[in-house]
Design a binder for these strands. Structure first.
Lengths: 257, 257
DNA sequence: CGTTGGCTTGATAATCGTCAATTTTAGTGG
DNA sequence: CCACTAAAATTGACGATTATCAAGCCAACG
């Protein structure tokens, strides 16, 4: 009856089970924060028209450390200031699925506002600097500032829409399309506006792409190599360059022209 | 460069492009509604401690009719009272992906509270009776009743969690597991508590399962037949019976005992 | 300079899709 | 109630996509 799994089983990588983040440094303030104007922080600042009086701290975690472990009780709510993290779940037999990436300005999930725990874990992909609020504190803030909840609701809906897109990718697009679309999305998030030659830091490993897109690392390697040989992208040394934007869009299944 | 699609292309079925729902009948009230005590309606009733004074109507739509079409401006917000609908997306080359089912008590997406439009369409799978609120009306209600928004936020988070589970299924589970898990979920939603022999109305076609689970109808047929031959389920005449619960759970990749 | 993590590549195989024919089931009108 | 028709499901043969296994390469780094 049971057939073998369709996707790669992953062994735990060394260093992967690092403890939770605990490197707490001082608070450097919002004034210098590049996120001041964006996302949730913008809402906060807007609400109070000036300085925020929420309790907060700044954490710094190394790459591969966990920001949160599935089923743990979350006492804090964090927002990413610098770096990249990812939310993932591991199925019983060891296969890993990445749900989404958390990029600067992203919440470590709006879910924690309504839930004490989550089914996914969160791990730093690069070193991550984050801003941590006490959960009870933030909930009080929300009660006092009726407009804030709207902002959270908005964020929640946005996460949901991202998931919807990902479900369509996983269910109905082949590996070429998934990978090309991921690269495009990622580049777009980092300021790409569609032109040829755009180049940016790309710390994502093939294993991450595989686990996000429901593929194996080996297959991702083949497709990336194919894209490279076809002159669509250049990818080495942690730098990704979009060489042929139209070509990449075509590979992604987007109709150009 | 481009390879052929991984999944079935679907031709539009006859009758599938029916117009939007317009069969408006009178309002039969909340008193007799089986959903009175559950989900959003419970929240509404709790808020006002008695009768709701929101404008509303009752719509009845036939199977295969659309409750909403992607990109349309949504003026209403609906809650399903009876029947089953599904949210889906069609990718440019005709492949369809079902995002989720909407069952009695479910909202026709919390997204519409924050958005005018959605990227998915919603279609009735069976005849659907739904309760329709005017969007502006409901938004006013939310502003006046500060606790209501919390309930919506909660629902939004719940939808998100369902999507997370589905992403894991699509990315990291094989067809047997996906189908078995879907059957289990569905049965559970309709009152199954895990015992052998549970039987219930199952109006879902193989094409729906295929489009939900990222498979083809043909492959779903094979797996369902296999389950049947293995004595796990009985499925015919729109009735599904769970014959061997443990066997089905095993097929789903859940460790028994 | 050996070790480690990440990537590449080849050979082979499993899963799942495609195509097409056929049967079964459900629905409709006489 | 039967005949007819459309929809849905089944089945077989075949093929494509993607996984698995395994070996080797490369660059970073202590």
């Amino acid at each position: 009856m049971s057939s073998s799994p369709p996707t790669a089983k992953r062994k735990l990588q060394p260093g992967e089970s690092d403890g939770a983040a605990e490197d707490i440094s001082g608070w450097s303030g919002c004034a210098a924060c590049p996120l001041r104007e964006r996302g949730f922080c913008a809402v906060l600042l807007q609400e109070r028209e000036g300085v925020l009086d929420l309790q907060r701290r700044e954490h710094m975690v190394r790459a591969r450390q966990h920001l949160y472990r599935a089923k743990d009780k979350a006492r804090h709510i964090a927002i990413i200031r610098e770096g990249i993290a990812f939310r993932y779940v591991v199925v019983p037999d060891g296969r890993r699925q990445i749900l989404s990436f958390a990029l600067p300005g992203d919440f470590l999930s709006t879910s924690f506002l309504a839930r004490d725990t989550a089914n996914f874990s969160v791990q730093a992909l690069t070193p991550v600097r984050m801003c941590v609020f006490d959960k009870a504190d933030l909930q009080r803030f929300i009660r006092e500032e009726p407009n804030a909840i709207g902002a959270f609701f908005e964020m929640c809906v946005l996460e949901k829409e991202r998931y919807e897109a990902q479900i369509v990718d996983l269910g109905r697009r082949n590996s070429d399309e998934r990978i090309a679309r991921f690269l495009i999305q990622f580049a777009t998030h980092f300021g790409w506006t569609g032109e040829d030659g755009f180049s940016f830091a790309f710390p994502v490993r093939q294993q991450h792409m595989a686990d996000l897109l429901g593929l194996t690392q080996v297959h991702v390697s083949r497709v990336v190599s194919k894209f490279r040989r076809a002159g669509l992208i250049e990818l080495s040394g942690g730098l990704l360059q979009i060489v042929d934007a139209n070509g990449l869009r075509t590979a992604a299944g987007v109709r150009n022209n």
